[in-house]
Design a protein around this nucleic acid. Structure first.
Lengths: 222, 222
DNA sequence: ATCTGAACATACTATTTGGTCTGTTATGGG
DNA sequence: CCCATAACAGACCAAATAGTATGTTCAGAT
């Protein structure tokens, strides 16, 4: 009756974990099903019981990853939001938390799975490509909202939109992850994020700041 | 006597071009030799006459690409350098030229080949990984030099090193290329580069500027 | 013109790959 | 306890894949 037993779900997750690690090392096309099986070890029957095909794995893998990824993103942001009422301070804190997390990355997950899929995109069907693009858009959208709040409170030293800033930090992180991986340097992404924080301070910093957080936001809302 | 005839070189280049286009679409592991042959069409004998193996193609392809890539990079910078004596103006001009180039990208070369290799890195042998890392370092080093010149002439509004700025623009471009590809949006990279120029203006701009280009540079040299 | 090696063509092969088929074992609801 | 079905095991298969073997053509130096 039940669609899937405890044990089954557990096995499926283990296969997904193994697949993720291998895909992050060698790409999707570069990872054969046998590679994944050897990485378990799992049996062929096990794999094809849980996944209809390799293409099916591709879909389930990104969606599984994106679910966990976005959830952690939101959790971290929510955490930052409890520690301050000022959106700029929240953003700064969030970035610092991200930097701490990404530098501690012990496992072989150096890089971004969306980038892996993006750079092999033409072998996936359009629905996967769309999903990856949508996920990146979701990611950006969260930043956009926060920067909108910031722009409601602070006057930037130069004209800039929330979207521009959001896309910039996403670009910086994506790019830094490429370099981090290419160089085998675990601190690259954190450094780039820190530099972006520096830019934000210059843009919204004490000199350029015209309104304290609460004031303008309440003013706008009223 | 000659190592390779005109015709041979020509064919090899055509194969490399086809291979590059396919690899940029589906990744390296996702591109089979038969795919490349069909993309020509070329014969199997032709391929294995020019390349010892698929791994050999991997090596020759990045090196061939990097040679052309870095050359264009230097040419564009040299062009920018002839139009102004001010290193900051040169950088701005260079970025603008890059933006024009990258937005016009008609072909299917959306993205960066080094990123493709980096995200499939574990299937290549270490010498290729090292080559890619070195090429990215070369790329960064050129920016570092230019930012050093800028920092000799201008006082930044916040403390910043040439290396930080160089790594930031490289990250931004790498990341923007990922987004550009994921979204199928040809203007993303140019917009990110433009935003970085904005940051540079804020950092070195009229308010923060303390020395005119020539002055301080000469002063430092003397 | 000739002759040598580069350049190309193509049939063939061993292995890998994604995927199936058949059968066995474990699980949990009634 | 029973039994339907989920979960697993592993032999098997056809297609794809990288690579070879063998031969032919062609360009260019002498």
């Amino acid at each position: 009756m039940c669609a899937m037993s405890r044990k089954g779900q557990q096995t499926k997750e283990k296969i997904l974990t193994t697949a993720r690690d291998l895909v992050m090392q060698k790409g999707f096309a570069g990872t054969s099903i046998d590679d994944i099986l050897k990485g378990g070890p799992y049996s062929k029957g096990q794999f094809f019981h849980h996944f209809g095909s390799k293409a099916d794995l591709a879909t389930e893998l990104v969606k599984w990853h994106a679910g966990r990824d976005i959830e952690m993103f939101r959790t971290t942001l929510a955490q930052a939001e409890t520690r301050s009422d000022d959106p700029l301070a929240q953003m700064m804190l969030f970035l610092k938390m991200f930097e701490r997390y990404i530098s501690n990355e012990n496992e072989p997950s150096l890089g971004c799975m969306y980038a892996v899929y993006t750079y092999e995109s033409m072998q996936f069907d359009p629905s996967i490509r769309d999903f990856v693009a949508d996920t990146l858009r979701d990611w950006t959208a969260i930043y956009v909202r926060k920067f909108q709040e910031i722009l409601e409170c602070y006057e930037p030293a130069r004209p800039v939109t929330a979207r521009q800033l959001a896309e910039m930090i996403v670009s910086i992180i994506e790019g830094a992850l490429v370099l981090q991986r290419a160089y085998g340097n675990v601190t690259m992404t954190a450094r780039q994020s820190a530099h972006f924080r520096d830019y934000l301070e210059l843009l919204f910093g004490t000199d350029g700041k015209t309104n304290s957080g609460e004031e303008k936001r309440l003013g706008t809302a009223a």
